[in-house]
Design a protein around this nucleic acid. Structure first.
Length: 189
DNA sequence: GGTGGGATTAGCT
DNA sequence: GCTAATCCCACCA
């Protein structure tokens, strides 16, 4: 079953935690690619200086202030993209940081021009590239094809690890990163 | 209208 | 570990 929009109308930290283990699917023109979410980060509002929403609504981050269950995609360093899921609270979202490749692995290998499965999706911009997600998917609803997230059985809370977020220069004191313990596809440990 | 930095990655040492 | 690649956009003037 595809996760309903109500799933995203919850506290951002809860959504970040509950997305672990779920299946991100993209039915692209190249084929269908899917991966199991193994690492996420929560970005909050208004007291999170690391969030793009921190300085208020702009053209770039307007998705963050829109409806829950839509995507927020932005480009970084000129050449990469990151994929987020907008949650209930205004200005908040969950960044998908890594996936365990499940479906369409051969297509992913071709797109990324590499054979190693382990490094196919273990980074926020890597998974975006592997699933052929791009800027045109900004603000799309994630409750129906071509881009959606499938429900999977809930994880044992003991399997979920927490840590500080990665790659940011402010807001480093907030432990808002969640990952599946002992999973080799988590980007860093 | 100019500018500085960024929720990154791959490849080299 | 270090660094280049590469560009959009928010911010200040």
């Amino acid at each position: 079953m595809i996760l309903p929009q109500d799933f995203y109308r919850q506290d951002t930290k809860i959504v970040a935690k509950n997305l672990l283990g779920k299946l991100l699917v993209h039915e692209s023109t190249l084929g269908t690619m899917a991966g199991r979410i193994v690492e996420t980060e929560a970005y909050l509002f208004p007291n999170d200086p690391a969030s793009h929403s921190f300085r208020g609504k702009t053209k770039r981050n307007e998705a963050l202030f829109g409806e829950a269950g839509r995507s927020y995609i932005y480009s970084i360093f000129g050449m990469h993209f990151c994929f987020n899921v907008v949650t209930k609270a205004e200005g908040e979202a969950v960044l998908i940081r890594s996936l365990e490749p499940v479906m369409g692995i051969e297509i992913m290998k071709k797109i990324r021009r590499m054979e190693k499965i382990k490094t196919l999706c273990n980074g926020p911009s890597k998974l975006v590239q592997s699933l052929a997600i791009n800027k045109t998917h900004n603000q799309v609803l994630l409750t129906h094809p071509p881009l959606y997230i499938m429900d999977q059985p809930s994880l044992d809370p003991k399997q979920i690890g927490t840590s500080f977020r990665i790659g940011i220069s402010t807001g480093q004191d907030l432990a808002l990163r969640y990952f599946i313990r002992d999973n080799e596809f988590v980007s860093r440990r």
